[in-house]
Design a protein around this nucleic acid. Structure first.
Lengths: 191, 191
DNA sequence: GTCTATACCAAGATAGAC
DNA sequence: GTCTATCTTGGTATAGAC
């Protein structure tokens, strides 16, 4: 029975380096145009060396998305309101179109239950929906959102809207995604 | 200088056949899992033969999406209201997840201005935005939508919401996309 | 210092677009 | 058939637990 020893210090560092480099390269080149070859070259590894760490390109990209989630979370840890946090992330994403493209392409592909990252998105959406629904309720209690609104449906709506706006904004959209999001929030105020 | 003669009747028929077959195969297998090889086999052509008609895989998929747009339009030609039409399409799309996946994956990838289908989406979104904005104005005049709503922003919102909901609905979403869309429309009513 | 899982590479199998 | 991309196979070198 082979005992598992876990990654060496060197491996841990290399993983970090790969994720950081991948985030940059993808943010610049987008998803489809980023090959494992290019990624491997960017961190001074062979392709096989790169895949040793992540197993497959899809797993690597899933790890990149998780890393981005974590970066967003820690950057916005001071913001307790989930809706404000979502809005800030949407604003920030204007600067990293490649990552937005990775996210939207990957989420679309992962709709297939067979897809490696399917569960990642199931969990991510569920978690987001819960925290946003709470935020809606808090705002309702504070009188900032009409009580006619259904918190779960508004949460689902806010996520769909963010995702959809970010895709649409890549095609000569006049309005900024965050503006449209804010317009919805304004309209949800009790009259 | 060669005169352009255009496709022969046989070619036109074959094109139709390819699009119909591609629609079926994609609806079943999704986008990424559908290869030109498989598509060629499904219509009894070699790969080269298939590509003769559409030039590239991307062009073929763009043609599939245009064919779907046309099918939707003619199926719903009796419905004059763009918002009602959008809602009906969203409902209908529940039955064709593969196509929804093709659409969402393709639109995400086409965010890159270099992408072949970039212009297709630019035009599609623009057209949709215009007709939806008109529909919002009509509803405002009829008292069904609050005049506080900005027609262009609501139009953008409705599109983003439809797109985003359809992606999200592939991941164990409790609510139906059309329900959430209806909830928004209900909340947009003047109080 | 021994041992073996981890870190990595060269070459090639496989498959897809064209 | 050609080119390009992912991923496998089979290997060597090294980190680090004991």
């Amino acid at each position: 029975m082979a005992t598992t020893r876990g990654p060496y210090a060197k491996g841990v560092a290399k993983r970090e380096e790969i994720l950081t480099a991948a985030l940059e390269v993808i943010a610049r080149n987008g998803y489809r145009k980023t090959s494992t070859r290019e990624l491997a070259a960017a961190v001074g590894l062979s392709e096989a060396g790169l895949l040793h760490y992540f197993g497959s390109k899809e797993k690597l990209f899933e790890a990149v998305l998780r890393a981005r989630d974590e970066a967003d979370t820690s950057r916005l840890s001071a913001e307790p309101d989930a809706i404000a946090k979502l809005s800030a992330i949407v604003r920030h994403n204007t600067d990293v179109p490649g990552l937005v493209q990775l996210y939207s392409t990957f989420s679309a592909e992962a709709g297939d239950p067979q897809h490696r990252a399917h569960e990642y998105f199931v969990e991510r959406y569920q978690r987001l929906r819960e925290t946003l629904a709470e935020s809606v309720q808090t705002r309702q209690a504070a009188g900032a959102v009409s009580t006619a609104a259904n918190p779960e449906k508004i949460a689902t709506m806010l996520i769909a809207l963010s995702d959809g706006l970010q895709v649409q904004s890549q095609f000569r959209l006049d309005a900024e995604p965050a503006e449209v999001l804010d317009h919805l929030l304004a309209l949800l105020r009790p009259e």
